[in-house]
Design a protein around this nucleic acid. Structure first.
Lengths: 206, 206
DNA sequence: CCGCTCCTGTACCGCCGGTACGGTTCTCCG
DNA sequence: CGGAGAACCGTACCGGCGGTACAGGAGCGG
């Protein structure tokens, strides 16, 4: 029981690193079992096929992702009662966290699954969609609360603003990888942060 | 001579669609030759291996991408002499173009290659990097020109702003695919457009 | 000691990327 | 019109990989 879970976790750890580095297709099962020190039979005992591995990988990744956002933004809300300040602080904390990753962000599994969508079944696509919707809900709620206290200089939809957070994160990851500049991602997040601050900045002559 | 180029183009057309839909790894050569109506030998006459196909695919994609940006922003600059207005107009035109794609944006090959980076050789990674740098240069130039005429409300680096264009495009593509909402990408671009307008909007009491 | 979880070992299949190579057809140029 | 490439076709083959099948064994809790 305990032993099985531990092996499964080890497989997922190895697989996640490999998939983020090389893509799902380029990650072979043989390679995974070699690194985890189990046999092929052992692998297929835990995962029916590669698709189920992808599913488990994705679910675990999203879960962890949510946990990180929970931590960061709850900490930000502890430090400031103002919803705008808390959000801006959260973005800053997130940017700093991303800056501290030595080799840059390892990549987002949601994005990897997206760029290879038809290679996976609809279940995985649906998990992916739900993840994006959760992000929208999370940040959308924050923007709605901000809008209760601040009047935006431009009329923008809270959900679209929320999607902008995901967009900047996903796009920043892609750009960082393409440019081989780990700093781009946290930088882009800070640029977005400036935009948000600007958007809700009270008019000069109120 | 002419014939060869045409076949090669047909292979690339089929391959591009398949790669964007399923990912590079999930796209088999057998499948490509079946759809193009040639044989395996014929395929390997045109491309030494799959990696060279990827390279040709990527180069053609980037070339086409650049051409589209050239057209849109040169048209925008014809319609307005003001660099800010021209840029904002360009974003609008781009957003409209993206809106008109019936099934949404098919995906960016640069991003797909990024999420599977180690599966390809360094040459491809370098092409990818150069593409991102070209985007930076293109939009960076525009922002620098804008900054000659407008004073931004917040001090932001022109290159980082330029990267933001790429970020929003790449991130928007990912989000659109994840959410299965084609409209998200053009919407995100318009949100960014609003930010840019806000950034360079003259102060109320100048 | 039974039974269950958690594997190992072996053998095998079909698909796929890639190689090798001989032959064929088409195309353009002289 | 004829020859020389260019642009393929056909066939056979290889190794790696995803996946299946199935038999068996170690360890562990009840």
């Amino acid at each position: 029981m305990r032993k099985g879970e531990e092996t499964r976790t080890r497989i997922l750890d190895v697989a996640e690193a490999a998939v983020l580095a090389k893509g799902f297709g380029a990650t072979s099962i043989d390679e995974l079992i070699a690194e985890t020190g189990i046999t092929k039979s052992g692998f297929f005992y835990h995962f029916r096929d590669k698709n189920e591995l992808a599913k488990a990988l994705l679910e675990r990744y999203i879960e962890n992702d949510e946990r990180i956002y929970d931590e960061i933004f709850s900490r930000a809300h502890e430090l400031s009662d103002d919803p705008l300040q808390a959000f801006l602080l959260g973005l800053k904390l997130l940017s700093e966290l991303l800056s501290d990753l030595p080799n840059g962000h390892p990549g987002c599994l949601v994005a990897t699954m997206c760029t290879q969508e038809r290679a996976f079944d609809r279940e995985i696509q649906e998990i992916n969609r739900q993840a994006a919707l959760m992000w929208r809900q999370r940040f959308g709620g924050m923007f709605r609360e901000i809008m209760c206290h601040y009047r935006p200089r431009e009329a923008l939809d809270a959900d679209q603003l929320a999607d902008m957070v995901s967009t900047v994160l996903e796009g920043g990851i892609v750009l960082s990888k393409a440019l081989k500049e780990p700093k781009s991602l946290p930088d882009q997040l800070l640029v977005f942060r400036t935009f948000v601050r600007l958007l809700f900045q009270p008019m000069a002559q109120a």
